[in-house]
Amino acid sequence: KWEEIAERLREEFNINPEEAREAVEKAGGNEEEARRIVKK
């Protein structure tokens, strides 16, 4: 599940997989929260 979210974030925000994974981890697997983290 987290991998899927990280993949979507990576494609959408054009970030590297590591950044995407970190955002999802910080968000506890919550996609909306992960998006907010990435946008900062």
Rank of each mutant, 00 (worst) to 15 (best):
E31M: 10
N14C: 08
N16I: 06
E7F: 14
I37Y: 09
L9N: 01
G28P: 00
K40F: 15
E32L: 09
F13V: 03
E31S: 04
R21H: 08
N14G: 15
N16L: 12
E19I: 12
G28I: 08
E18L: 11
R10I: 13
P17G: 12
V24L: 10
K26G: 05
E25I: 15
E33V: 12
E7M: 15
E7H: 13
R36T: 09
P17T: 08
E12Y: 08
R35H: 05
F13M: 07
E31P: 06
P17I: 15
A23Q: 02
E33Y: 05
G29I: 01
K39Y: 11
R10V: 12
E18N: 10
A27L: 01
G28F: 15
A6G: 04
K39D: 09
V24N: 00
W2F: 08
E25L: 14
A20K: 00
R35E: 03
N14H: 09
A34F: 00
R8E: 02
G29V: 01
I37F: 08
R36G: 06
E32M: 09
A23Y: 06
E19L: 13
E4H: 10
A34Y: 00
A23N: 01
E33K: 08
K39G: 11
E3N: 12
E3S: 13
A20T: 02
R35V: 06
E4V: 09
I15D: 02
E4N: 09
K40R: 14
E3G: 11
E4S: 11
E12S: 05
E3D: 11
E22H: 12
N14P: 05
E4W: 14
F13P: 02
G29H: 03
E25Y: 15
E11K: 15
R35M: 05
E7D: 12
G29R: 02
E7V: 10
E33F: 06
V38M: 07
L9G: 00
E4I: 13
I37N: 07
E3M: 12
V38T: 04
A20P: 00
E31W: 14
E25F: 14
N14R: 06
E11W: 15
L9C: 02
A34W: 00
W2N: 06
A6Y: 09
W2S: 05
R8I: 06
E3R: 14
K39W: 08
E32D: 10
V38N: 01
R8S: 05
K39T: 12
E22V: 12
K1Q: 13
G28L: 13
V24A: 04
E19Y: 09
A27G: 04
I37P: 00
K40Q: 14
R21Q: 09
I37T: 06
A27I: 00
I37E: 06
E11F: 15
L9M: 05
I37D: 03
K1L: 14
W2I: 06
A6M: 14
E7T: 13
A6R: 05
W2G: 04
I15E: 03
E31C: 06
N14T: 06
A34G: 02
G28R: 12
G28Q: 13
E4F: 10
K26L: 10
N30H: 07
N14S: 12
I37W: 07
I37H: 07
R21V: 08
E31G: 03
N14I: 04
E7K: 14
K39R: 14
E12G: 03
A23V: 07
G29T: 01
N14D: 07
K26T: 06
A20S: 07
A6Q: 07
E7R: 14
P17L: 14
V38S: 03
V24W: 04
R36S: 09
E33P: 01
A27W: 01
E11Y: 15
V38F: 04
A23E: 01
E12V: 05
V24R: 00
R8F: 03
K26Q: 09
V24E: 01
N30V: 09
E18G: 08
E33D: 08
K26H: 08
E18K: 08
K26W: 08
N16M: 10
E11Q: 15
A20D: 01
E25S: 11
A34D: 00
R35G: 03
K40D: 12
G29M: 03
R36V: 08
G29N: 03
E12W: 07
E33H: 09
E32P: 08
V38W: 04
A27F: 01
K40N: 14
E32V: 09
F13E: 03
K39S: 13
E19R: 07
K26P: 01
K40E: 15
R8M: 07
I5T: 04
R21E: 07
R21K: 11
E18R: 09
A23I: 11
E25M: 14
N16W: 05
E12T: 06
E19P: 03
R35T: 04
E32K: 08
L9K: 00
I5N: 01
I15V: 09
R10S: 10
I15W: 01
I5G: 01
N16Q: 11
E22F: 11
E22D: 13
N30Q: 07
A34E: 00
A27Q: 02
R35N: 02
K40L: 15
E22K: 08
E32T: 10
E31D: 03
R8G: 03
V24K: 00
E3W: 12
G29E: 02
R21N: 08
E25H: 13
K39E: 13
E12M: 08
I15A: 04
E19D: 11
V24Q: 01
F13N: 07
R21W: 14
N30W: 05
I37S: 06
R8A: 06
P17R: 11
E25V: 13
V24S: 02
N14W: 06
N30E: 05
